[in-house]
Design a protein around this nucleic acid. Structure first.
Length: 360
DNA sequence: TCTGGGGTCCTAGGACCC
DNA sequence: TCTGGGGTCCTAGGACCC
């Protein structure tokens, strides 16, 4: 197939320290202080992690993902706030509506990020930069929140750009400059390169994206499978993935970490039933049936297991969820092993709404 | 470092079918 | 029963994203 190659211009918009920024906006008295949004620190004995912190807290080393107990030790005087998810969802919906208006194709990426394909809306990168400034201005005027925007010839470069000058940044990299831009950056900056992959690459003598771009593609493919080829292409700045307007839901899940590790089977079953009920609500409200159910447990030593089964039929009945999850968790209940977390996931989803439409 | 909760995608082995 | 090859589905685990 010889599809005519079209020059694309993609924007990636990333809200700055989103959860913390919304809290600062709602509570003016905490502005200027270190703010940590996440689990309850409980005077240094809490469970869970930091979700988002503001820049004042980051000065103390309090960053996203660290245990809340550690945050407490680093900065006990910070303002600690619980995650007010429904508030952030409302703010996010308004911001996404603004962004969507600027894009030919639009893809939400979590609550606080989005990709915009603006290829048909601007003639060149100069115009794209002006458009990005306009977007930043509108978001700030309407929501009093700042964002960082990356402009590039594809999603990969746009995403890396938006992270380049945070906060309130705007970085533009044209197709002809992308190799020079990417080359000195750490491989960790690439999408899908997390801690494990970074370590493996470092062991191979690969530190920067430039090192990766000069590496033998066949060796990468051999060591990392399909992901290896993807890594090599990304390092060249090649990413042909489209901005995806629609996302099909593949699974829904609920999980919870106990306040204290437990082997109390009554508590475990009650918790499991509550998770099942919660899932059932969402399943029916969103008009799905499911066929596969998986239970997840994590023991006190963090050893984690999943156990699932596929039913011979699609269902949305609560009793099917509860009975199956109870059966599945049974194998893991042992009087000598305390459980830290349990969860339930429904997959193999089928949209009954779509079915009705097709039948019409 | 004592590690949340909601997702997606990939891999590898085994069952089962033709 | 010592044997094949391809395709699909299922299961468990792991890496990664926000």
């Amino acid at each position: 197939m010889c599809r005519k190659k079209r020059r694309r211009i993609i924007l990636h918009v990333d809200m700055d320290k989103f959860f913390a920024a919304v809290e600062e906006r709602e509570n003016p008295e905490i502005r200027g202080k270190p703010v940590v949004v996440g689990a309850d620190p409980k005077e240094g004995t809490g469970r869970g992690v930091v979700s988002t912190s503001n820049y004042e807290a980051r000065k103390y080393g309090v960053t996203s993902g660290i245990p809340i107990t550690r945050a407490w030790r680093l900065c006990p005087n910070a303002v600690y706030l619980p995650v007010n998810y429904s508030l952030y969802q409302k703010v996010s919906a308004r911001i996404m509506a603004i962004l969507r208006g600027y894009a030919e194709k639009f893809e939400r990426w979590g609550l606080d990020e989005a990709f915009l394909d603006v290829s048909s809306r601007v003639k060149n990168f100069k115009e794209a930069e002006k458009l990005a400034q306009k977007i930043k201005k509108e978001v700030y005027e309407k929501e009093r929140l700042t964002c960082s925007v990356g402009v590039g010839p594809n999603k990969l470069v746009a995403k890396i750009c938006s992270d380049f000058e945070k906060p309130d940044g705007l970085t533009v990299v044209r197709a002809e400059d992308e190799k020079a831009f990417l080359s000195p950056l750490r491989v960790r900056k690439l999408l899908w390169v997390g801690r494990k992959t970074e370590n493996r690459l470092n062991m191979m003598g690969i530190q920067t994206i430039g090192d990766l771009a000069n590496y033998d593609a066949s060796v990468l493919a051999e060591k990392f499978g399909a992901g290896g080829t993807q890594l090599y292409l990304m390092a060249q700045g090649i990413d042909n993935s489209e901005v995806q307007e629609h996302w099909e839901r593949k699974s829904m899940s609920r999980e919870i970490t106990f306040e204290e590790d437990t082997c109390d089977s009554k508590l475990i079953f009650e918790t499991l039933d509550a998770l099942s009920e919660d899932l059932h609500h969402e399943l029916t409200a969103s008009n799905f049936t499911f066929k596969t159910i998986t239970v997840k447990i994590r023991y006190e030593n963090f050893e984690t297991h999943t156990h699932g089964k596929t039913l011979p039929f699609f269902t949305d009945r609560l009793k099917d969820i509860q009975k199956s999850s109870r059966d599945l968790v049974q194998d893991y209940l042992r009087s000598d092993r305390k459980i830290r977390l349990i969860g339930v996931r429904l997959s193999n989803l089928f949209s009954t709404e779509k079915q009705t439409r097709l039948a019409d």
